[in-house]
Simulated assay, not measured.
Amino acid sequence: MLEGNRVSRISVRGFAVASATAVTAVGSVVGVASGSVAQNNDAEPTAADTTLLADIPAGQQAQVQTASLTQQADTQAIAADTSAKKDAEEAARKAAAHTAIQKKAAAEKAVQDAKDRAKAKEAASRDAVRTESSSSSSSSFPVQSSYTVAQVQAMARQIVGAGQFQCFSNIVDHESTWNYKAVNPSSGAYGLVQALPGSKMSSVGADWQTNPATQIKWGLQYMNERYGSPCDAWSYWQANGNY
């Protein structure tokens, strides 16, 4: 009986405690419902304190998702625009480089064409000089015991030709001042063009010592063969003081 009474008391106490706990819980609920601000400062935050997407109303969920998608689209658009700009800049750089290469090639070709035309013109001029020389060589000049400077120059105009005469004349002016019997006391060079030795002119005529025409023909032949023309020989003379 004693043991049975003890059990009964424990049961009653447990019931009382349970009842008190229930009342307290109900009171808390009532207090909250009535606007009571009494809170247990020691209470731990519960899962209800964390806001999840599922806790947001359906309309607001759509707005959040739309904003997120819009931000992603803007980011992708910026990246695509940056990539497109880089591609455009690279394409423009390559196009400019290609254009520069084409212009350089065209300029080099133009220079080469100009050089080729100049060479062709020069060759034609030399051929003309040689033709004139050959034609004049077949002509005869009256043999005289002596010749004036004017007579010698007239011979030279006919033999050398107008295109190269001035250059030929410049050389003769410096070499002998148109004296067909001029002798260099130091070297022994002889005649209008100061051939060294003077006997070289015998290849054109045995009268090389007394006939200006023979000296002129030999001088023209020498200038053509060694320099290309009297004007080329004169250019060399100006640079070196001799030819």
Score class of each variant (00 low, 15 high):
23 V>S: 12
23 V>M: 13
23 V>T: 11
24 T>F: 11
26 V>S: 11
29 V>M: 10
31 G>I: 04
32 V>Q: 08
33 A>M: 06
34 S>Y: 05
34 S>G: 09
34 S>H: 07
34 S>N: 12
35 G>L: 05
37 V>L: 14
38 A>V: 14
38 A>M: 13
39 Q>R: 14
39 Q>A: 15
40 N>Y: 04
42 D>C: 05
42 D>W: 03
43 A>E: 14
43 A>H: 07
48 A>R: 00
50 T>L: 06
52 L>V: 02
56 I>D: 00
58 A>H: 06
59 G>A: 15
62 A>R: 14
62 A>V: 14
63 Q>M: 15
63 Q>R: 14
63 Q>A: 15
65 Q>S: 13
67 A>P: 01
70 T>D: 13
70 T>S: 08
71 Q>Y: 02
71 Q>N: 12
72 Q>L: 10
74 D>C: 00
76 Q>P: 02
77 A>M: 12
77 A>H: 03
80 A>I: 05
81 D>P: 01
84 A>G: 05
85 K>F: 09
85 K>D: 13
92 A>K: 14
93 R>Q: 14
94 K>W: 02
94 K>M: 11
95 A>P: 03
96 A>Y: 00
97 A>R: 04
98 H>T: 15
99 T>N: 12
100 A>F: 01
100 A>K: 04
100 A>I: 01
100 A>E: 07
104 K>R: 10
104 K>C: 01
105 A>T: 06
107 A>L: 04
107 A>H: 00
107 A>Q: 05
108 E>P: 00
109 K>L: 13
110 A>T: 07
115 K>I: 03
116 D>T: 15
118 A>M: 03
119 K>C: 03
120 A>F: 01
120 A>N: 10
121 K>H: 07
124 A>H: 03
125 S>H: 09
125 S>F: 03
127 D>T: 11
128 A>H: 04
128 A>R: 10
129 V>S: 10
129 V>G: 05
131 T>M: 11
142 P>I: 03
143 V>Y: 12
144 Q>G: 09
147 Y>F: 15
147 Y>R: 02
149 V>W: 07
